[in-house]
């Protein structure tokens, strides 16, 4: 059953160039979809649009974001916020800036449960304690009372993951959740997210530029170029034989850790030209 369905979503800079060009994709309940593409391809923008946190400089010019069958873009703002808060969550990119420095950890995990979902404080705190244990944080009670600056980056990312799962959301957007971390910590965090996702059966929209990560955690993926979806396939099919020339080039450009001597392969100019022409044709098709 499809939980999130994005239909022909177009987003652009106010009076500026388009950032998303009629993007469509589905995320079934419990499914993990990777969003890949180079910087500026619009992969993060999709996650922001779903969560209602597009920057003020950006506007949605068309399309639908169906969450459990309801178009978020047609809801009044307060209702949209409440619905997103109750069913979706974000695992942010940078754990060092994503926790409020003036609040203790406890309230930052329980705030949504208490304020938005109406739990009692005691229930919410018990839940937070369980979650911290689940993300393998030792001494959860101490951490709940700690301020963010007292904890390491890896700890903070674990806390943010725990916090994302707190309200048992149907969908989590993970916005490059390992990019800001140490390479040694990256792997653990990735495993942690994959494990939590599997246990809780949460659908995941995993934004990343790392195809290696996609092969480990995702079932399906969308490849974006310049705000357009150029390929939408299952991960098995993709890694066996990417359908689109750009995807194939992107896959070939991924550094092979097993063979450092192979060097870095840039995406060939011919492929770029072809995909640009395709984007232009796609835009004309819209007009």
């Amino acid at each position: 059953m499809t939980f999130l369905s994005i239909r022909n979503l177009s987003v652009r800079l106010k009076k500026g160039p388009p950032l998303l060009r009629r993007v469509s994709l589905d995320v079934a309940a419990g499914e993990v979809r990777g969003l890949v593409g180079e910087s500026g391809a619009g992969k993060s923008m999709i996650g922001k649009a779903v969560l209602g946190i597009l920057p003020p400089s950006v506007e949605v010019t068309g399309g639908e974001i169906l969450l459990d069958g309801t178009d978020l873009l047609r809801l009044p703002p307060a209702e949209r916020r409440r619905r997103i808060g109750a069913t979706c969550a974000l695992i942010p990119q940078d754990p060092l800036t994503a926790l409020n420095p003036s609040h203790r950890i406890g309230p930052q995990i329980t705030d949504r449960l208490v304020d938005i979902l109406g739990w009692t404080r005691a229930d919410a705190t018990a839940r937070a304690r369980d979650l911290l244990a689940e993300v393998q944080i030792p001494d959860p009670d101490r951490v709940l009372r700690a301020y963010p600056h007292e904890l390491s980056g890896g700890m903070r990312q674990r806390i943010l993951i725990a916090s994302a799962f707190a309200a048992e959301p149907k969908l989590i957007v993970a916005d490059e959740p390992t990019t800001a971390l140490d390479v040694t910590v990256q792997k653990q965090i990735l495993k942690l997210i994959a494990g939590m996702q599997a246990r809780h059966g949460t659908a995941l929209l995993f934004v990343t530029h790392d195809l290696g990560v996609v092969s480990k955690v995702c079932q399906r993926l969308s490849v974006l170029y310049s705000g357009m979806v150029v390929e939408d396939s299952s991960v098995t099919d993709f890694f066996a034989a990417p359908r689109h020339a750009y995807s194939a080039a992107l896959l070939a450009a991924t550094p092979k850790y097993t063979d450092p001597a192979a060097g870095l392969l840039p995406v060939p100019d011919a492929v770029i030209d072809a995909v640009r022409a395709e984007v232009a044709a796609h835009d004309r098709g819209a007009a």
Partner: peptide, 12 residues
């Protein structure tokens, strides 16, 4: 970032 994160939690 922490303000953006709070927005996704449903706060006005």
């Amino acid at each position: 970032d922490y303000v953006t994160l709070a927005r996704t939690k449903g706060y006005g």
